[in-house]
Design a protein around this nucleic acid. Sequence first.
DNA 1: GAACTATTTCAAAATTTATTGAAATAGCTT
DNA 2: AAGCTATTTCAATAAATTTTGAAATAGTTC
Lengths: 92, 92
Amino acid sequence: MSIGESLKILADPVRRDILLLLKKEKRTAGSIAVELDISPAALSYHLRLLKQGDFVLEYREKNFIWYEINATVFDELLLWIQQFRGDAHEKE
Amino acid sequence: MSIGESLKILADPVRRDILLLLKKEKRTAGSIAVELDISPAALSYHLRLLKQGDFVLEYREKNFIWYEINATVFDELLLWIQQFRGDAHEKE
DNA sequence: GAACTATTTCAAAATTTATTGAAATAGCTT
DNA sequence: AAGCTATTTCAATAAATTTTGAAATAGTTC
Protein backbone atom coordinates (compact mmCIF):
# COMPACT_ATOMS: atom_id res chain seq x y z
CA MET A 1 0.00 0.00 0.00
CA SER A 2 1.48 3.35 -1.06
CA ILE A 3 1.71 6.50 1.01
CA GLY A 4 -0.68 8.17 -1.39
CA GLU A 5 -3.33 5.53 -0.84
CA SER A 6 -2.80 5.59 2.91
CA LEU A 7 -3.19 9.34 3.09
CA LYS A 8 -6.31 9.25 0.94
CA ILE A 9 -7.80 6.72 3.29
CA LEU A 10 -7.01 8.85 6.34
CA ALA A 11 -8.29 12.01 4.68
CA ASP A 12 -11.91 11.07 5.32
CA PRO A 13 -13.46 12.08 8.66
CA VAL A 14 -15.72 9.03 8.87
CA ARG A 15 -12.76 6.70 8.45
CA ARG A 16 -10.79 8.58 11.08
CA ASP A 17 -13.73 8.25 13.46
CA ILE A 18 -13.82 4.52 12.78
CA LEU A 19 -10.12 4.27 13.62
CA LEU A 20 -10.60 6.26 16.82
CA LEU A 21 -13.35 3.86 17.88
CA LEU A 22 -11.27 0.81 17.03
CA LYS A 23 -8.32 2.29 18.85
CA LYS A 24 -10.33 1.91 22.05
CA GLU A 25 -11.71 -1.58 21.44
CA LYS A 26 -12.56 -4.04 18.73
CA ARG A 27 -16.09 -3.80 17.36
CA THR A 28 -18.53 -5.38 14.95
CA ALA A 29 -19.54 -3.53 11.80
CA GLY A 30 -23.06 -3.04 13.13
CA SER A 31 -21.81 -1.52 16.37
CA ILE A 32 -19.65 0.97 14.49
CA ALA A 33 -22.51 1.98 12.22
CA VAL A 34 -24.80 2.62 15.20
CA GLU A 35 -22.17 4.54 17.10
CA LEU A 36 -21.29 6.79 14.16
CA ASP A 37 -24.86 7.00 12.93
CA ILE A 38 -24.19 5.99 9.35
CA SER A 39 -25.88 3.35 7.19
CA PRO A 40 -24.49 -0.20 7.15
CA ALA A 41 -23.78 0.19 3.46
CA ALA A 42 -21.79 3.38 3.94
CA LEU A 43 -19.92 1.82 6.81
CA SER A 44 -19.12 -1.23 4.73
CA TYR A 45 -17.71 1.01 2.03
CA HIS A 46 -15.38 2.72 4.47
CA LEU A 47 -14.36 -0.53 6.11
CA ARG A 48 -13.45 -1.90 2.72
CA LEU A 49 -11.08 1.00 2.14
CA LEU A 50 -9.61 0.68 5.62
CA LYS A 51 -9.07 -3.03 5.04
CA GLN A 52 -7.48 -2.40 1.65
CA GLY A 53 -5.10 0.02 3.33
CA ASP A 54 -4.30 -2.49 6.07
CA PHE A 55 -5.53 -0.08 8.70
CA VAL A 56 -7.87 -2.67 10.14
CA LEU A 57 -7.97 -6.44 10.49
CA GLU A 58 -11.08 -8.57 10.67
CA TYR A 59 -12.12 -11.98 11.91
CA ARG A 60 -15.40 -13.84 12.02
CA GLU A 61 -17.13 -15.07 15.15
CA LYS A 62 -20.62 -16.53 14.94
CA ASN A 63 -22.23 -14.38 12.32
CA PHE A 64 -20.52 -11.20 13.37
CA ILE A 65 -17.36 -9.84 11.83
CA TRP A 66 -15.09 -8.20 14.35
CA TYR A 67 -12.83 -5.38 13.31
CA GLU A 68 -9.70 -4.24 15.06
CA ILE A 69 -7.08 -1.64 14.35
CA ASN A 70 -3.73 -2.59 12.85
CA ALA A 71 -1.26 -0.32 14.57
CA THR A 72 1.75 -1.28 12.47
CA VAL A 73 0.66 0.50 9.27
CA PHE A 74 1.12 3.86 10.87
CA ASP A 75 4.88 3.44 11.00
CA GLU A 76 5.34 3.85 7.26
CA LEU A 77 3.26 6.99 7.39
CA LEU A 78 5.37 8.40 10.19
CA LEU A 79 8.50 7.94 8.13
CA TRP A 80 6.98 9.74 5.16
CA ILE A 81 5.96 12.71 7.24
CA GLN A 82 9.28 12.89 9.02
CA GLN A 83 11.09 13.57 5.75
CA PHE A 84 9.51 17.03 5.70
CA ARG A 85 10.49 18.05 9.19
CA GLY A 86 13.25 20.57 9.74
CA ASP A 87 16.94 19.76 10.06
CA ALA A 88 16.60 19.82 13.84
CA HIS A 89 14.97 16.41 13.60
CA GLU A 90 17.39 14.73 11.22
CA LYS A 91 18.82 11.38 12.22
CA GLU A 92 22.38 12.70 11.93
CA MET B 1 -5.70 24.11 10.96
CA SER B 2 -7.19 20.78 11.96
CA ILE B 3 -5.73 17.33 11.40
CA GLY B 4 -8.62 16.57 9.05
CA GLU B 5 -7.82 19.52 6.85
CA SER B 6 -4.10 18.74 6.90
CA LEU B 7 -4.67 15.15 5.86
CA LYS B 8 -7.04 16.18 3.10
CA ILE B 9 -4.40 18.53 1.76
CA LEU B 10 -1.74 15.81 1.80
CA ALA B 11 -4.10 13.28 0.20
CA ASP B 12 -3.60 14.76 -3.26
CA PRO B 13 -0.65 13.55 -5.36
CA VAL B 14 -0.10 16.89 -7.05
CA ARG B 15 0.19 18.63 -3.70
CA ARG B 16 2.60 16.00 -2.43
CA ASP B 17 4.73 16.50 -5.54
CA ILE B 18 4.75 20.23 -4.89
CA LEU B 19 5.95 19.61 -1.34
CA LEU B 20 8.65 17.25 -2.54
CA LEU B 21 9.91 19.93 -4.95
CA LEU B 22 9.83 22.61 -2.27
CA LYS B 23 11.60 20.31 0.13
CA LYS B 24 14.63 20.50 -2.18
CA GLU B 25 14.56 24.25 -2.83
CA LYS B 26 12.29 27.26 -2.89
CA ARG B 27 10.60 27.93 -6.22
CA THR B 28 8.34 30.33 -8.02
CA ALA B 29 4.83 29.27 -8.95
CA GLY B 30 5.74 29.25 -12.63
CA SER B 31 8.70 27.00 -12.09
CA ILE B 32 6.58 24.50 -10.19
CA ALA B 33 3.91 24.48 -12.88
CA VAL B 34 6.50 23.81 -15.59
CA GLU B 35 8.23 21.09 -13.58
CA LEU B 36 5.01 19.26 -12.76
CA ASP B 37 3.44 19.96 -16.15
CA ILE B 38 0.19 21.41 -14.88
CA SER B 39 -1.57 24.64 -15.80
CA PRO B 40 -0.83 27.81 -13.82
CA ALA B 41 -4.46 27.92 -12.72
CA ALA B 42 -4.40 24.38 -11.40
CA LEU B 43 -1.13 25.03 -9.64
CA SER B 44 -2.51 28.17 -8.08
CA TYR B 45 -5.45 26.18 -6.76
CA HIS B 46 -3.18 23.66 -5.07
CA LEU B 47 -0.87 26.33 -3.71
CA ARG B 48 -3.84 28.07 -2.17
CA LEU B 49 -4.75 24.90 -0.28
CA LEU B 50 -1.14 24.33 0.78
CA LYS B 51 -0.95 27.91 2.02
CA GLN B 52 -4.25 27.57 3.89
CA GLY B 53 -2.86 24.50 5.57
CA ASP B 54 0.38 26.30 6.45
CA PHE B 55 2.36 23.75 4.51
CA VAL B 56 4.07 26.47 2.49
CA LEU B 57 5.12 30.07 3.04
CA GLU B 58 5.44 32.70 0.34
CA TYR B 59 7.21 35.98 -0.21
CA ARG B 60 7.40 38.41 -3.11
CA GLU B 61 10.55 39.38 -4.94
CA LYS B 62 10.31 41.52 -8.05
CA ASN B 63 7.21 40.21 -9.70
CA PHE B 64 7.76 36.62 -8.71
CA ILE B 65 6.25 34.95 -5.71
CA TRP B 66 8.59 32.49 -4.09
CA TYR B 67 7.24 29.50 -2.26
CA GLU B 68 9.01 27.51 0.40
CA ILE B 69 8.05 24.60 2.58
CA ASN B 70 7.07 25.14 6.21
CA ALA B 71 8.54 22.17 8.01
CA THR B 72 6.94 22.86 11.37
CA VAL B 73 3.38 21.89 10.39
CA PHE B 74 4.35 18.30 10.06
CA ASP B 75 4.89 17.97 13.79
CA GLU B 76 1.19 18.13 14.63
CA LEU B 77 0.55 15.45 12.05
CA LEU B 78 3.21 13.20 13.52
CA LEU B 79 1.57 13.42 16.92
CA TRP B 80 -1.82 12.48 15.48
CA ILE B 81 -0.43 9.43 13.74
CA GLN B 82 1.58 8.33 16.72
CA GLN B 83 -1.59 7.88 18.78
CA PHE B 84 -2.42 4.85 16.65
CA ARG B 85 0.88 3.08 17.01
CA GLY B 86 1.20 0.03 19.20
CA ASP B 87 1.94 0.08 22.91
CA ALA B 88 5.61 -0.55 22.16
CA HIS B 89 5.88 3.09 21.14
CA GLU B 90 4.03 4.64 24.08
CA LYS B 91 5.68 7.51 25.91
CA GLU B 92 5.43 5.63 29.23
C1' DG C 1 -33.77 -26.29 5.08
C1' DA C 2 -36.54 -22.19 6.56
C1' DA C 3 -36.26 -18.14 9.12
C1' DC C 4 -33.16 -14.96 11.10
C1' DT C 5 -29.26 -11.63 11.81
C1' DA C 6 -25.14 -9.33 10.14
C1' DT C 7 -22.78 -7.64 6.51
C1' DT C 8 -21.65 -6.73 1.70
C1' DT C 9 -22.50 -5.56 -3.08
C1' DC C 10 -24.60 -3.02 -6.69
C1' DA C 11 -26.13 0.75 -9.62
C1' DA C 12 -27.84 5.26 -9.19
C1' DA C 13 -27.82 9.78 -7.12
C1' DA C 14 -25.59 13.23 -4.40
C1' DT C 15 -21.61 15.53 -3.04
C1' DT C 16 -16.99 17.06 -3.19
C1' DT C 17 -12.75 18.05 -5.44
C1' DA C 18 -9.81 19.22 -9.41
C1' DT C 19 -9.06 21.17 -14.05
C1' DT C 20 -9.82 24.37 -17.75
C1' DG C 21 -9.66 28.68 -20.41
C1' DA C 22 -10.62 33.33 -20.05
C1' DA C 23 -10.43 37.42 -17.61
C1' DA C 24 -8.59 40.02 -13.72
C1' DT C 25 -4.89 41.55 -10.64
C1' DA C 26 -0.32 42.90 -9.29
C1' DG C 27 4.15 44.48 -9.68
C1' DC C 28 8.01 45.53 -12.77
C1' DT C 29 10.30 48.18 -16.64
C1' DT C 30 10.70 51.56 -19.87
C1' DA D 1 1.12 55.37 -18.06
C1' DA D 2 1.77 51.58 -21.53
C1' DG D 3 3.46 47.20 -22.12
C1' DC D 4 5.35 43.18 -20.00
C1' DT D 5 5.57 38.99 -16.99
C1' DA D 6 3.83 36.26 -13.17
C1' DT D 7 0.13 34.77 -10.72
C1' DT D 8 -4.67 34.49 -9.18
C1' DT D 9 -9.62 34.35 -9.64
C1' DC D 10 -13.82 33.00 -11.75
C1' DA D 11 -17.54 30.24 -13.62
C1' DA D 12 -18.08 26.13 -16.03
C1' DT D 13 -16.88 21.43 -16.73
C1' DA D 14 -14.88 17.13 -15.61
C1' DA D 15 -13.59 13.69 -12.54
C1' DA D 16 -13.48 11.38 -8.23
C1' DT D 17 -15.60 10.16 -3.89
C1' DT D 18 -19.43 9.16 -0.81
C1' DT D 19 -24.17 7.93 0.26
C1' DT D 20 -28.43 5.60 -0.57
C1' DG D 21 -31.87 1.87 -0.83
C1' DA D 22 -32.53 -2.51 -2.63
C1' DA D 23 -30.93 -6.91 -3.43
C1' DA D 24 -27.48 -10.49 -2.59
C1' DT D 25 -24.43 -13.23 0.39
C1' DA D 26 -22.98 -15.69 4.46
C1' DG D 27 -23.27 -17.86 8.60
C1' DT D 28 -26.52 -19.17 12.65
C1' DT D 29 -30.26 -21.20 14.98
C1' DC D 30 -34.29 -23.64 15.18
